[in-house]
């Protein structure tokens, strides 16, 4: 418990504590408006399209908002001191060594994927995927107001990525990871000598394949098969789905690729937790 309390009260973790309150609040705020709009059929904002003068109305709100935020910041800065530890010492590695809180979801991904995927390729896809959102989401509805009913897929996918793969992993990395990057429940004392047996084995080994070449080939089939789900759904649905026809092949390929890549993380996590799977696909050059 003491370590957990220490983490919770650590000055640099205050932002994460703040997020744990702010995010539920704003999520509630957004979804209650979405529910209201969906029920009423027209967004509440549609009745407020008349124009008002920025001076004084908007400027006044901005001013009040700025004062409130500055007050909070002043109180925060007077009551909590920025941390300063011992001078840096390259010969003394703290255990665990943690990145700043906003990068802890990335550090958490390192548990499940090799660094080149977790640290470089996946972040690259996250950035590219975010930039691509407006160009691949061709649903014209739900622009400029809160709604759930009119864009369930977009909101569901985004929220899954935002909450589960970012916020939750960040919280796990901050509060539950201890020495050796092992998981420690809040009430457990951190034991730096905790030994976790490394029993992780490759999926192909688990399936009884002992020959390296065969393993590489079978692993390739798994990964290729997973990504083939995209085209398979396309061929299966294209005749009947008007949505797919409007979306077009290129957009569909990008969406399905990004979607499947996103879900490869929870799948890998489930394989690791459920069956101690280390890699799905092992090749002489890289492992996935």
């Amino acid at each position: 418990m003491e370590h957990f309390l220490e983490l919770v009260t650590k000055a640099d973790n205050v932002p994460i504590m703040a997020i744990m309150f702010l995010l539920p609040f704003f999520t509630w705020l957004a979804f209650s408006q979405a529910r209201r709009n969906d029920r009423a059929g027209t967004p509440a904002e549609a009745a407020q399209k008349d124009k008002v003068y920025v001076w004084p109305y908007l400027c006044r709100s901005e001013f009040v908002c700025a004062i409130i935020v500055m007050l909070i910041l002043a109180v925060w800065s007077i009551t909590i001191d920025a941390p300063l530890e011992e001078p840096s010492n390259p010969t003394q590695t703290p255990n665990p060594s943690k990145a700043p809180w906003y990068f802890l979801a990335l550090q958490e991904m390192l548990v499940y994927f090799d660094p080149w995927i977790a640290g470089v390729v996946l972040p690259g896809f996250i950035i590219g995927g975010l930039i691509a959102i407006p160009y691949i989401d061709i649903n014209p509805k739900g622009k400029g107001y809160y709604t759930l009913k009119e864009r369930p897929f977009a909101i569901g996918t985004f929220c899954f990525g935002f909450f589960v793969l970012w916020i939750v992993l960040m919280i796990v990395g901050t509060f539950l990871r201890g020495p050796g990057w092992n998981l420690f429940a809040p009430w457990v004392k951190w034991d730096p000598h905790k030994v976790v047996p490394l029993t992780n084995i490759n999926l192909t080994y688990l399936l009884g394949i002992r020959n390296d070449q065969t393993a590489t080939f079978v692993g390739f089939i798994f990964v290729a098969g997973y990504y083939a789900l995209g085209p398979i759904c396309y061929l299966w649905k294209i005749k009947t789905s008007k949505f797919l026809q409007e979306l077009g092949l290129v957009r569909y390929i990008i969406i399905s690729f990004l979607f499947l890549t996103m879900f490869s993380l929870p799948i890998k996590m489930a394989l690791r937790w459920g069956a101690n799977v280390k890699y799905v696909w092992v090749t002489p050059w890289f492992n996935i």
Partner: peptide
């Protein structure tokens, strides 16, 4: 700030760059 916190957080953060394909 060049303290332990700073040094190791940045060490961890930049270590991933060595795995860039």
């Amino acid at each position: 700030p060049w303290d332990q916190l700073a040094f190791w957080a940045v060490t961890v953060g930049t270590n991933m760059a060595r795995a860039t394909p």
